[in-house]
Amino acid sequence: MKVLIIYHSEHHDNTKKLVEAIAQQGDVTLADTSNARKINWSDYDLIGFASGIYYQKFHDDILKCAKEYLPQDKQVFFLYTCGVKRNTYIDSIKQIADSKNAKIIGSYGCPGFDTFGPFKLIGGIAKGRPNNEDIEGAVKFFADICG
């Protein structure tokens, strides 16, 4: 199975740590959002979207890539890192996937070091995250969905 993961990792490379660990597991192509248009998305069986959380949703660049480049009827999954974990972070990316008739096969989220906005004043939250356990959890999630 050929896998493409489109990611946006900013500030502390929290999300990049997850996708790089996953990429070591097999036939996985990583592309940050700036390179997404150069890829033939149709060549891939499974497409992942990975992002830190910005204003309660995936980064705008990820949402834009999904709207513009995600082919119809693909299998997709979502990965995210966040300062505070909530269940609603995938709502915006899920809506786009649904509009493309994509089959969503899962999502994985974990804490990531966050110094955005007021968190900077207190030295950040979720320090040391994602840690090895978080990264191993992402790898296990990926192995499980690829079965």
Rank of each mutant, 00 (worst) to 15 (best):
V84Q: 13
W41G: 10
Q24T: 09
D73V: 00
S9C: 03
A23W: 06
I47S: 12
D98S: 12
V84N: 13
G83C: 03
A36D: 04
S9F: 02
A36L: 03
I5E: 11
T15N: 03
T115V: 10
K85Y: 13
Y55C: 08
F119S: 10
Y80A: 07
S107W: 06
A50G: 10
I96R: 08
G117E: 10
K85I: 10
T81E: 09
D27W: 07
Y54R: 11
Q95Y: 10
D114E: 10
L4K: 09
S51Q: 11
K85V: 09
P118Y: 10
F58D: 09
S92C: 05
G106E: 07
A23C: 02
D61M: 05
E20Y: 03
L70G: 03
L63A: 04
K2R: 15
T115P: 04
F142T: 02
K120C: 01
I39C: 05
I62F: 08
K120G: 12
K140L: 12
I39Y: 01
L18P: 02
H11D: 11
D43E: 15
E133D: 15
G123V: 04
R86T: 09
D45H: 14
I96D: 04
S34Y: 07
D73H: 14
D43V: 02
K85D: 13
K2C: 08
I22L: 01
I5A: 14
G83L: 01
H11I: 04
G147K: 15
K67G: 10
I47N: 09
G109Y: 05
C146R: 13
S42N: 13
D134L: 00
Q25L: 12
S42L: 02
L46R: 11
M1Q: 08
Y69M: 08
I22W: 03
K120M: 08
I145M: 02
G147S: 13
T29V: 11
D134F: 00
P118N: 09
A102N: 08
I22A: 03
G117I: 00
F116T: 11
K100Q: 12
K127H: 04
A102I: 01
D13H: 13
T33E: 05
S92T: 10
I145F: 03
T115N: 14
V84L: 13
N35G: 09
Q56S: 14
F58A: 12
W41A: 06
K16C: 00
I62K: 05
F78P: 02
G117L: 06
N87G: 14
D43M: 08
E68C: 04
K57Y: 09
C110W: 00
M1V: 04
Q72S: 15
G128K: 05
A126D: 00
A66D: 04
L46M: 09
K74H: 12
G52I: 01
A102S: 15
A23G: 06
L79R: 08
E133W: 01
L30G: 11
Y44T: 02
L79H: 08
H59D: 15
R129T: 00
G137D: 09
K67E: 15
K64M: 07
Y7K: 07
E136N: 14
T33P: 02
Q75K: 15
I122G: 11
G52P: 11
S42E: 13
Y89N: 15
A126Y: 01
H59E: 14
Q24D: 14
I145W: 04
G124T: 06
K2D: 15
F113E: 14
L79F: 00
K38F: 10
S42K: 12
T88M: 01
D45I: 05
T29P: 05
Y69L: 12
A66I: 00
N14S: 07
H11V: 06
